[in-house]
């Protein structure tokens, strides 16, 4: 299963991941920093999560294939 990692120190609050995969990413209301809702990505969400990693302006999202 695909595992997703988020580096909150790199996050620039662009919110791109939330547009791409709202089931996996959210944002803190106060500073917009992304938060991970789940680490394991089920098959139906893989495309969205890959897109999120691609369009993150700070390259804060990494994917791990298991």
């Amino acid at each position: 299963m695909l595992k997703v990692k988020l580096d909150q120190d790199k996050c620039v609050s662009g919110g791109q991941c939330v547009f791409a995969a709202p089931e996996v990413f959210d944002q803190r209301d106060e500073d917009g920093v992304a938060v991970l809702l789940r680490e394991d990505v089920p098959a139906e969400l893989v495309d969205g999560v890959r897109e999120a990693a691609d369009i993150c302006p700070a390259l804060a999202i990494t994917l791990q294939e298991n």
């Binding site: 944002q27 209301d29 106060e30 500073d31 917009g32």
Partner: peptide, 11 residues
């Protein structure tokens, strides 16, 4: 300015 949810909503 420090209103990230306004920014997201606007986009």
């Amino acid at each position: 300015v420090d209103r990230p949810m306004d920014h997201m909503s606007a986009r």
